[in-house]
Design a protein around this nucleic acid. Sequence first.
RNA 1: AGCCCGAUAGUAUAAGGGUAGUACGACAGAUUUUGGUUCUGUUUGUGGAGGUUCGAAUCCUUCUCGGGCUACCA
Length: 577
Amino acid sequence: MTEAPNESSTERSDAGGHLNFIEQLVEEDIAAGKNGGQVFTRFPPEPNGYLHIGHAKSICLNFGLADKYGGQTNLRFDDTNPVTEDTEYVDSIKNDVRWLGFEWENEFYASDYFEQIYGFAEKLIQKGLAYVDDSTSEEIAAQKGTPTEPGQPSPYRNRSVDENLDLFRRMRAGEYADGAKVLRAKVDMASPNMQLRDPIIYRIKHAHHHRTGDTWCIYPMYDFAHGQSDAIEHITHSLCTLEFEVHRPLYEWFIERLGIFPSRQIEFARLNLTYTVMSKRKLKQLVEEGHVNGWDDPRMPTIAGIRRRGYTPASLREFADRIGIARRENLIDLGLMEFCIREELNKTTHSVMAVLDEQPIKLVITNYEEGREELLNIENNPEEETITYRRVPFSREVYIERDDFMENPPKKFFRLFPGGMVRLKGAYIIKCDDLVRNDAGEITELHCSYIPESRSGSDTSGINVKGTIHWVSVPHAVEAEVRLYDRLFSVENPAADDPDGQLRSFKDLLNPNSLEIVRAFVEPALVEAARSGEQTNFQFMRKGYFVLDPDSTTNRPVFNRTVTLKDGWAKEQNRKS
RNA sequence: AGCCCGAUAGUAUAAGGGUAGUACGACAGAUUUUGGUUCUGUUUGUGGAGGUUCGAAUCCUUCUCGGGCUACCA
């Protein structure tokens, strides 16, 4: 240990070294010598659905924490409810965790511990701390009382140890029907904490389990499986979301009575994101009512959806890092997630040209010889340390977007207008001479002239233009389908519109324009790159970041818009209107 | 209603008795062959009231507001 590092290094370590409250607790534990200074965590999903961005926060937290302190993280499936769980979900969860960039130390299942957990239950019975209750679920609910009134003891609360043991074994043996009996922990029916009013710890379910098959007909409840699994795995820090806070006294009660490894449960606030919903029930509703096209719809906050939207694992890890960890409820601005993916893609993708328009304008360069073609060198990404170039064909006719031309432009419109000049990106400066209209009076073509000495890279024209627009050569253009995704909901916090947790119609909350499908013309190099699998993420110059979608066919590529570019012009226009 | 948890710029997140900082956003300017990027600058905050203290975002009291708990789900 060297003393007194110089000031600058102290500052540096402080600057990046803010600890969140969990890291502080962990460091206190390490300093106190708990668990031999080790840090073991686990990510414990129930395999009953798809992972979403909130799970990503938890994954990054658990794996990140163990990694930071030289520990390990297990992937543990919390599969104690056979009727809701399925192997299909196990596979998708593993896939998502790996895709995020994490590798677990062990793959475990709560169902691996059923025999041990059963043993814990018998131990509790033998200590007189658990009893078999024949009451119906309604009766048990009535016994619980309310938060303001204490509960009443069950008539079966004082059964003898022997009777309880016998009954519990017969429960296991399958002698009773579902719901006929439960095993309850004998804690405190008058506790102000409802979780402690003799919670049910085992129930009878004659159901097929995705892993244990028909071996069991009794299954432990969450409260008698999660902490026990943590203990078995010697998880030092068991991180979960705030709603489990009231379970912690029970978690610790079991540790004490059972004398098992004392994992420490720490709760943090779950992630909420603007313009989306996070609850499994609501996500399911979106899928089932057909508001989206499945769990991996690019508008969904599922990891599968976000992946298909074109987000990268690194951008999600960065996002998880930036949102922080705390105990207060939060609603994170979707814009932060967008910032994270732009930040990465800006550095890594090639900027290519795509004309996104159902009805692009054809631009005819009247003084460019018919049949002439040039291959222009255009830089792939101005951010590259050493710039690379690709060849882009140019010809007498090019497509441009309708938005890049205005017949009567407002002030500070830098794009094309009658008599105006712009640069075609990577090519020439052109001047708009004439408009061509169809019978309906719509503009179909622009006749322009180009300045031959203004060619990019060897411009001797001395002309400066304000605007540069993108284009695609008509004879070389490849047609593509482009899916323009936007926020799923039009209100910031759709969950707030659902105060009672009632299932209600999403109709007035959904963004009607969350998906717009347009035809596009893209430069040929892009299709080659995508087909070869070299790159799937691109910047469509001036438009946004796009990713090749699995729906693509060899003849017709499909691109999803991941996120738009920031658009100062559009922002200013919106402000005016 | 009882118990528990929480409250720091618009949104998040630091500061654990000693100058309220950072990021995103917003605004302004510079650069720019992407109205992008980059750079520079500006802006905005400790929920209220008391108390302890030389000194309080931090400790205490109280109020207010927000969240959680009354599943044989997790």
